[in-house]
Design a protein around this nucleic acid. Structure first.
Lengths: 239, 239
DNA sequence: AGGCGAAAAATTTTGGAAAATCGTTGACAC
DNA sequence: GTGTCAACGATTTTCCAAAATTTTTCGCCT
């Protein structure tokens, strides 16, 4: 370990600047649950954990506040955003609303390239197992990424950068809940068929059916998280 | 209860920290147009302009990136977010979508206190003239604030912190366009009646009428900005 | 003249140390 | 025993200077 090297020699993996690199790593750790909800993010601790100075760390945290993954209060520092049943409910309901908009617009405006993108994304997703382990559930990052890509592909046709960005934001927040729940219990469900049905309805331009399936898809995720036994005390939301 | 202010809650004359103070001031300057769209926000310049060190300035800018008022690129620094006809169109259409959701939810869930809030906000708004000058238009900050409060009051009943926060965000972005347009030409329109009609429909719980009026209200703003002659070259959007 | 490349300048990024602030502990008075 | 206050300790916030990077400038060659 080159402790006294001038700067990280190979800094390309993640971003050109240290701040961006630290941002990526903290972000991953929060979503994966390595940094627990409500956990204090003190300057000194993070400086050690990520081997960086105060400035990049602080910058990274500031960026994360924008995504609602980190809370900040003047003179009190940074905390990992709390979780709670109430917040989860708001999150899912908001996703239903916003993604319905994006879905309707996508179906209305989507062109051939858009359709192709969905088919490809689904195909890729189908080839990867839900769980990294044969028996029982083990987090599979590849599946997670392709799953995200599939849903993104569907909403990509909506034609509104703002709505698309916001959908991504909400999806990341939901991902954290999903991750936390996944560490506790493995929900058995046939997600492949769900995705297939959604895709079919979307490609067929059957708006109402697509919306209904999409809503059900999101609600099911919510139920699974709630049922997983994840302690969602509302007190854990600092802000 | 959740009076979600975007700025720090403790906003007494500058804020507790320099970063927050600088954040408020830059924010004001961008929305008011004092800092033109696309303008470079160099560390040295801002350090002089706001009489603060690099760290607080950088922190303030990072917070503003979250609101889409500032763009950032690694190794290239900060710029005031660009404007453009395309972006304005996206903004207005997004507002129509999101605020329709908030409006429907508000009408469905709003209680007596919510109704009271709307009536009070409207009353206060009615007492203040649209223009600060007797003849011709002059920007009236008091009216702007009360106008904002009126619309916020209507959407306050939606029960979703996320949607409400996002509405505020979009409203601030729209405010900048409105401000820039206002410096050029004064659009004559009877906004008081428009607000009255919206309020009446909302209080009467006439959802469809309220939504229709609300959409028309937003679209009219868009038309006025476009017609104001504000140069909206799409090239001015850096990111 | 125009294009190429290297030094120079300007700017961004980073690290650490000083200053300011908040929460706590402990002592003292009542 | 209780309440107040002051000093301490820990943490955040800020400033400044050095390091790394990008952009510009200028000389040089084709």
């Amino acid at each position: 370990m080159p402790s006294r090297m001038k700067t990280a020699p190979d800094n390309r993996s993640g971003g050109p600047t240290i701040a961006t690199s630290v941002y990526d790593r903290i972000r991953r750790d929060i979503i994966s649950g390595a940094l627990a909800p409500g956990h204090k993010l003190g300057s000194t601790t993070l400086r050690e954990r990520y081997q960086a100075g105060i400035s990049p760390v602080r910058e990274a945290l500031n960026r994360l506040v924008a995504e609602n993954l980190v809370c900040f209060e003047d003179q009190k520092g940074f905390h990992v955003a709390g979780i709670g049943a109430e917040d989860l409910d708001d999150l899912i309901r908001t996703r239903c609303h916003i993604e319905e908009i994006a879905l309707r617009e996508s179906i209305a405006n989507g062109d051939d390239a858009w359709e192709d993108g969905i088919v490809v994304a689904f195909h890729r997703l189908s080839k990867v197992p839900r769980s990294a382990a044969e028996d029982g559930f083990e987090f599979n990052p590849e599946w997670e990424e392709l799953h995200h890509a599939f849903h993104t592909a569907i909403l990509a046709g909506c034609g509104s950068p703002r709505i698309q960005t916001y959908c991504e934001l909400l999806a990341d927040q939901a991902k954290r809940y999903r991750q936390l729940a996944a560490t506790i219990s493995y929900p058995h469900r046939n997600e492949r068929d769900e995705h297939q049905d959604i895709m079919d309805a979307v490609i067929a331009r059957d708006v109402e059916r697509a919306v209904a399936l999409h809503h059900a898809h999101l609600k099911k995720t919510n139920d699974i998280i709630v049922r997983s036994g994840l302690s969602l005390s509302p007190e854990r939301v600092p802000a």
